[in-house]
């Protein structure tokens, strides 16, 4: 994969640093902080692309960036500036939702009840009943940013867990990674879905085309996965991600069948109807429940991660449905 195209001053600065190495720019900018404006970074494509690019050093890397930049202090410093703001904004955005939750219920039950608090349009329902082939292709292109590395961010958490929660995360990941069969690797099933509708399944191909929220959704998972401090948030996010997958996956598969797309397109989603009906319980009860039982202080972050997943899904749904169907009522109109 090659470095993406810049989308503004923040990504320009990051790309410049990665392209030339921090040493060569030491005289001017290497040690100055990134200047973030007052606007939200969550919905800012420039900030999210900058962060995504920095995170990719930890996954597949770039052919045109040196591999040792992954742990370069100057590069980590750029990442830290973006992350601090991103994390703060996400925590603020979900604070109200979390205050309304009952404090007494077991964390697993609270997690699985959370998706019912979600509002706004449903891309899955639109894909099911109304979407054209072009819209389905657009959806796969947007999702490719995270699905081609599906479960990779959560795999970073495994060495940070012990006992029951570690075993349950390993069970979940083993299933995600094909259960011993490379042809069942979920990342590969997604790539096959892409190929079946004429998309290029090469990792990172569409990064220049995807929206801010697709980048932000992938980045939230990376931030939670890469910081041990945020292990609770990583697993709470996973629980809600899984709990909001099975029913929408069935609708999306139905929409693909309605359009007569090749079976490989829907196969990925059919697989997730069944797999995620297992995974949501594994994640909510066996992973998060066990983590919180062992370390009660993690409860708050587990719920923060869960609510962040819903929050970003809602923003992402708005971005997508407004693009696909500009005459549809906006979320604000639906809510009022």
């Amino acid at each position: 994969m090659l470095l993406p195209r810049e989308r503004g001053p923040l990504s320009r600065r990051v790309l410049q640093t990665l392209r030339t190495g921090p040493g060569s720019s030491r005289s001017t900018t290497a040690f100055t902080e990134l200047a973030l404006g007052p606007d939200s970074v969550v919905t800012d494509e420039d900030a999210q692309l900058a962060l995504w690019t920095l995170y990719e050093l930890h996954y597949r890397g770039f052919d045109d960036a040196a591999e040792d930049l992954e742990w370069d202090p100057t590069v980590l410093r750029l990442r830290r500036t973006l992350e601090r703001r991103f994390e703060r904004e996400l925590r603020e955005a979900v604070a109200l939702r979390l205050r309304s939750l009952p404090g007494e219920a077991p964390v697993g039950e609270t997690l699985l009840a959370l998706p019912a608090t979600s509002t706004g349009p449903s891309p899955a329902a639109y894909l099911h009943r109304h979407a054209s082939r072009e819209v389905v292709v657009d959806f796969l292109r947007e999702r490719s940013l995270q699905q081609l590395k599906e479960s990779d961010p959560q795999a970073f958490v495994l060495p940070r867990l012990t006992g029951r929660s570690k075993v349950a995360l390993a069970e979940l990941l083993y299933d995600e990674f094909g259960g011993g069969r490379p042809e069942r690797l979920h990342q590969r099933l997604f790539a096959e879905a892409m190929v079946s509708v004429g998309l290029d399944p090469t990792y990172g191909t569409y990064v220049d085309e995807v929206g801010a929220l697709s980048l932000a959704s992938a980045n939230a998972m990376s931030m939670f996965g890469l910081h041990r401090r945020l292990r609770g948030a990583a697993m709470g996010h996973l629980a809600v991600f899984e709990a909001t997958s099975s029913v929408p996956s069935r609708k999306i598969a139905g929409g693909m069948d309605r359009l007569g797309l090749p079976p490989a397109a829907a196969a990925y989603f059919h697989e997730h109807v069944e797999a995620d009906s297992v995974h949501e319980h594994l994640a909510a009860h066996d992973i998060c429940g066990a983590m919180v039982a062992e370390e009660p202080g993690l409860r708050e972050d587990v719920l923060v991660g869960a609510a962040v997943c819903l929050h970003l899904d809602e923003l992402s749904a708005l971005e997508l449905t407004e693009r696909w169907n500009p005459t549809a009522p906006t979320a604000q109109e639906v809510a009022s």
């Binding site: 699985l112 009840a113 019912a116 099975s246 029913v247 069935r250 109807v273 069944e274 995620d276 009906s277 297992v278 949501e280």
Partner: peptide, 15 residues
């Protein structure tokens, strides 16, 4: 998809 769960229970018994 019997015997496997497909999460239909969520629609039948809203939580």
């Amino acid at each position: 998809r019997m015997p496997w769960c497909d999460s239909t229970h969520k629609a039948v018994r809203p939580r």
